[in-house]
């Protein structure tokens, strides 16, 4: 198999597969959560409250809580990391071109210079988290190999993307690795703690309502 067929595989069927597993997996998770909760988590529905649901999510989706106040550095790095992590691949010009080529759809994109900085920020924040895991005893003790592995899975698309953009090393190989790692990340999300990108909202809502029914804020 040469690089061209590999490229076409990653650009075609495997990309479909990755998106399929990612979206399908997450939809399935929500369905399974809903079904089990209907049977075993009566407390959610008995004390359901839109007010506490939104308040709880809002207070944490923007850093308006005690934890953010007490941990300003982790909060700052965490927010910058997540914003760049999500925005960079979606608004990257090169990705936009691919969408346009395939579907003739396009949307606003970042300038290449800004996207380049944002990529470096993601990698830098990721390294910060890795070092934090190694240095702080109370973080090290809960850290498992999976935590490092998932951090690596999250960072590799950005590292290879950066290398590809600057055409360091062999461009074709780096590009293929970039596509592979990007698809790998999408695939593992539904099955690992990375699913928190969606389950965060469920958990926050539930705890917000649980505290809220006693008129206590959970932030």
């Amino acid at each position: 198999m040469n690089l061209v067929t590999l490229y076409e595989l990653l650009r075609g069927p495997l990309l479909w597969l990755a998106f399929g597993v990612f979206f399908g997996g997450m939809v399935l998770r929500v369905i399974l959560f809903y079904r089990l909760s209907k049977r075993k988590d009566g407390v959610i529905y008995r004390f359901f409250s839109w007010k506490w649901l939104w308040l709880s999510i809002f207070r944490w989706i923007v850093p308006l809580n005690e934890t953010a106040k007490k941990n300003p550095i982790v909060t700052l790095v965490g927010f910058v990391f997540h914003i760049c992590l999500i925005a960079t691949p979606i608004f990257l010009l090169a990705h936009g071109v691919l969408w346009y080529e395939s579907w003739e759809i396009s949307w606003w994109s970042l300038s290449e210079q800004v996207a380049d900085y944002m990529t470096l920020i993601v990698i830098g924040c990721g390294l910060f988290f890795a070092i934090r895991r190694m240095v702080l005893p109370h973080v090290r003790i809960v850290t498992t190999a999976a935590d490092y592995l998932l951090l690596a899975v999250t960072l590799t698309p950005f590292v290879t993307g950066y290398l590809a953009y600057h055409q360091y090393f062999d461009y074709n190989t780096v590009l293929i690795l970039h596509m592979f790692f990007g698809e790998l990340m999408l695939v593992v999300i539904p099955f690992t703690k990375l699913s928190h990108f969606l389950m965060f909202f469920f958990s926050r809502a539930i705890t917000g309502m649980e505290f809220g029914r006693r008129s206590a804020p959970s932030w």
């Binding site: 959560f33 909760s37 075993k40 988590d41 703690k193 389950m199 469920f202």
Partner: peptide, 10 residues
């Protein structure tokens, strides 16, 4: 239950 499973996973 659903909450516990979710919490232990995420």
């Amino acid at each position: 239950n659903a909450r516990l499973k979710m919490w232990l996973e995420i």
